[in-house]
Amino acid sequence: MSTVNHIAPSEAILACQGLSKHFGGIRAFTDVGFQARRGEVTAVIGDNGAGKSTLIRCLVGVHVPDGGTIYFDGRQHPFSNPDEARKSGIETVHQNLALIDELTVAQNLFLNREIVRRIGPFALLDRKAMKEQARAMLSRLSINVPSVTQRVRRLSGGQRQAISICRAAGSGAKLVVMDEPTAALGVQETANVEALIRKLREQGVSVILISHNFDQVRRLSDQIWVMRAGKMVATVRSSETTGNELVAMVTGAA
């Protein structure tokens, strides 16, 4: 086990130790240690079935791990559901579960955190405020959409992904977790989303990125963690590794 524990806990926004998860008799991962530094983009790579997605789901409260401890923002913090994680400041950009097609851009950005005006006992939506803030959120991340009152259905894949990321970041999240954010996108759209991720880091948001694309991981991330067959097998600084080395670590050829 070559997991390195050289990061002081206070530097880590999210960390875990000895984490395990089984589904019935099937072992997703065992004894995993992992840390994501504050203000950095941390990548998790690995082959299909290596356990990356399950690990991330345990970290953000979708699954409850069987054993081990999770620290978030310096405190031991096991989340029992994604809502708790969200309230503590972890937003997840899901691969498929992203936006509601029939709602507008602004409605999607404020879904389940709508701004309301109180009128007596009633709480009515403040649509004007939401539209204005939606425009501000989008322009802060230089995201181009025709109009915040447009239905999401009519936007391109890249625009949709940008809006999902904007929503995650816009809630004042300390950590944004992204699962294959560019998996279904074209070249130009991928470049736009990558620029968006860099922008998030510039604004001090920590990011955990799951990706299959080793070039992308080296371009975007500061630290790379490698999983293989349910174990965390290595971690390297992105600046100190090569594509070939990553391939070797993922496949176990090294």
Binding site: L97, N112, L124, L125
Partner: peptide, 28 residues
Amino acid sequence: HVALYHTRFGVHLLATGGQAESASALGI
């Protein structure tokens, strides 16, 4: 009309009808 267009319930109703899984992933 007010309930559907001017309350959180209305938006959540449409979100639930649109993509229930995405809506619940967002805590609705």
